[in-house]
Design a binder for these strands. Structure first.
Length: 205
DNA sequence: GACGTGATTGTA
DNA sequence: ACAATCACGTCC
């Protein structure tokens, strides 16, 4: 069968609230050192821009860490958190306007052996990319992947999926600010969707 | 439920 | 300078 055409930049040049649900069922393909891993997205979260979304990394303006969010659409924004995890977003909206979609979970459909070797703690196939840091690890993303183009026909692509089934939405995971906004989207009933965890209510001293 | 781990940011 | 926070995962 013919090789599918990757999602064009125009796909990402829209509001994250539109892009996020549209990404469900699409496939992230990353080839690294001749090894290909493909993840079919089952869960994402939309993050709006500067001054619009208190939960977004971009909310308080451009910094070295989050600068990619202001770049052109269709690029990968990777950040490091909790001293040990990487998480990946896809940048949305025109250059100069921040916003993106956090890749929260997916199903590894190609290269499961490679993905598992990157995630030795995983117990079952469904938890290899179940959670944003797990997904980033399974795809082999790190600091050096921040800013990479996913529409340039290179070793990192987003391919159209074969449908997402029923899409559900609800509050974002671990987010206190803006918790009322139902900007997490997932495929109903998919076993790779991560467990919902409310924001920790702010540790008391 | 506790805790790791370090960058980042707000406060002083 | 210092302290709190953090779009999380793992093990108890």
């Amino acid at each position: 069968m013919p090789e599918p055409t990757p999602l064009p930049r125009s796909f990402f040049d829209r509001d994250p609230l539109v892009v996020a649900p549209a990404l469900l069922g699409t496939v992230i393909r990353h080839s690294q050192a001749g090894q290909v891993v493909e993840v079919r997205l089952t869960e994402v979260e939309a993050y709006l821009g500067e001054g619009e979304d208190p939960a977004s990394h971009s909310h308080r303006g451009k910094r070295p860490r989050n600068a990619t969010m202001w770049g052109p659409p269709g690029h990968l924004y990777v950040y490091f958190t909790y001293g040990m995890h990487y998480c990946a977003n896809l940048v949305c909206r025109p250059e100069g306007i921040s916003g993106g979609v956090l890749l929260r979970a997916g199903e590894v459909i190609t290269g499961l052996d490679v993905a598992r070797s990157r995630r030795p703690a995983s117990k079952r196939d469904i938890d290899v990319a179940q959670g944003p840091a797990r997904l980033a690890s399974a795809l082999g993303f790190g600091r050096e992947d921040d800013g990479r183009d996913v529409c340039g026909g290179g070793s990192l692509l987003v391919l159209p999926g074969s449908g997402a089934g029923k899409v559900m939405s609800g509050p974002r995971v671990g987010v206190a600010a803006g918790a009322q906004s139902p900007w997490r989207y997932w495929i109903e009933g998919d076993p790779t969707v991560s467990a919902y965890r409310p924001a920790v209510p702010r540790r008391r001293r």
